[in-house]
């Protein structure tokens, strides 16, 4: 059996590493905007060029699970409302530059940003 101190050190190391990775992944980075792609079931259903938007663009995406109302503005996008049970996608708020996508798991809907032309596109799905 390992000493408790060994376990604590291991756990603290994991905590620090994943904490640093989280900050890095969620931190806003420039340039904001880019192209927002909306996927349902892993398939691209719509893409919006956020840099080209001047006003608001509101549209609904219907999935097998239900409906998501999506609001796009210059440089940012969010799920305005949805009839999913957990509302995680709505509470996520605006997505403007983080690589972590907006997810609505009950509807299998994902919104992710692909930065400007310079962004490396390593898309598999």
């Amino acid at each position: 059996m390992a000493k408790t101190r060994t376990w604590v050190i291991l756990i603290v190391v994991i905590l620090l590493l994943s904490g640093a990775a989280s900050v890095f992944l969620y931190a806003p980075r420039s340039p904001a905007g880019g192209v927002a792609r909306i996927y349902v079931d892993g398939e691209l259903v719509r893409s919006v060029d956020l840099s080209a938007l001047s006003g608001e663009e509101r549209f609904t995406v219907e999935t097998e699970g239900g409906v998501n109302v999506i609001l796009a503005e210059a440089g940012r996008i969010r799920v305005e409302s949805a009839d999913c049970p957990d509302q995680v996608c709505v509470r996520r708020g605006w997505l403007s530059s983080s690589p972590a996508p907006i997810v609505c798991l009950p509807h299998r809907l994902v919104i992710r940003l692909d930065g400007g032309g310079a962004a490396v596109d390593t898309e598999v799905g």
Binding site: L17, A21, Y26, A100, P101, V103, V110, R112, G125
Partner: peptide, 12 residues
């Protein structure tokens, strides 16, 4: 969802 970028949530 077939979305590999979900892995970004792993650290959080």
């Amino acid at each position: 969802t077939g979305t590999p970028s979900l892995l970004y949530y792993l650290p959080v």
